[in-house]
């Protein structure tokens, strides 16, 4: 009995070694292949802290809809219109955008104004802090990215985000919303059920040197300005220097990078 156990352990050891060698061979094979390289697109936009400055005065129902539509068409965002809604960019009223800062004598103009909401791409993002798989993380340029390949759907990030910027795919968009219609953009994926999604600040567009879709859509009105806050000459930075702007829930310390000129 003792002996057979020992020999069993030996076999186990040898086979582990074998597996190790196999993976080493695998690595060697890859090294042989490995002249291939990856590089970023030279046309891509680079920055250190991307931010959006939203000029609320310039926003009306029509402009906001243009921005929202551009984003949702490009990213194949379904519109469920129920409690399982997916939100990348959307509007809400002042009292819901800045809860606790509303009062009974609020200027009428502000009270009914549609505020554009999206992920704040916080400098200190709690969603990134809590994610157990690094499915969401912060890039060097400040964008809080989401890797739907990696997400396990625990929804910890949704509990952590104080801005309600994250949505979960409770159902499969392909078999529900896009069942009878094609996803509008055949160049961009949809999502699968069970993963979290949110605004990615058009990382895929910045990579080829294009502005975020929402910014592009309303560029005539200049209602949304995009730029690098670490660059003192960027349009966004200059605008913030000239005009008074506020951010959502600054007291929470997440340091949002979406500014509102009211």
């Amino acid at each position: 009995m003792e002996r057979s156990r020992r020999s069993f352990l030996k076999i186990l050891g040898i086979s582990t070694l074998g597996l190790g060698t196999l993976s080493a061979v695998d690595l060697l094979a890859k090294a042989e292949m490995g002249k291939a390289e990856y590089s970023p697109n030279p046309k891509g936009m680079t920055g250190k802290r991307w931010a959006l400055v939203v000029d609320v005065k310039k926003l009306d129902e029509e402009t906001t809809q243009k921005a929202i539509e551009a984003c949702h068409l490009i990213h194949n965002v379904p519109d469920y219109g129920d409690e399982e809604e997916i939100k990348w960019i959307w509007t809400d009223k002042y009292e819901h955008v800045f809860p606790g800062q509303e009062h009974a004598y609020l200027a009428e103009e502000i009270e009914e104004k549609p505020f554009l909401l999206l992920c704040n791409h916080c400098s200190n993002p709690p969603c990134v802090r809590v994610c157990p798989t690094q499915a969401t993380w912060q890039r060097g340029d400040g964008i809080v990215m989401m890797d739907q390949h990696r997400c396990i759907g625990c929804r910890y990030c949704m509990a952590a985000c104080p801005f309600g910027a994250r949505s979960f795919n409770w159902k499969d968009p392909r078999t529900t919303y896009f069942k009878d219609k094609e996803p509008p953009n055949p160049k961009y994926p949809t999502r699968t059920k069970g993963v979290v999604e949110k605004c990615n600040l058009c990382a895929e567009r910045l990579a080829v040197g294009e502005m975020p879709a929402c910014v592009e859509a309303v560029k005539d009105s200049k209602a949304i300005v995009f730029g690098d806050l670490e660059d003192p000459h960027s349009e966004a930075r200059e605008l913030l220097h000239e005009r008074f702007a506020i951010r959502r829930r600054p007291e929470l310390g997440t340091s949002p990078n979406v500014y509102y000129i009211v």
Partner: peptide, 10 residues
């Protein structure tokens, strides 16, 4: 997605 390197040099 993760490294932002979207060009493959074969």
């Amino acid at each position: 997605i993760r490294e932002g390197k979207r060009i493959y040099v074969a």
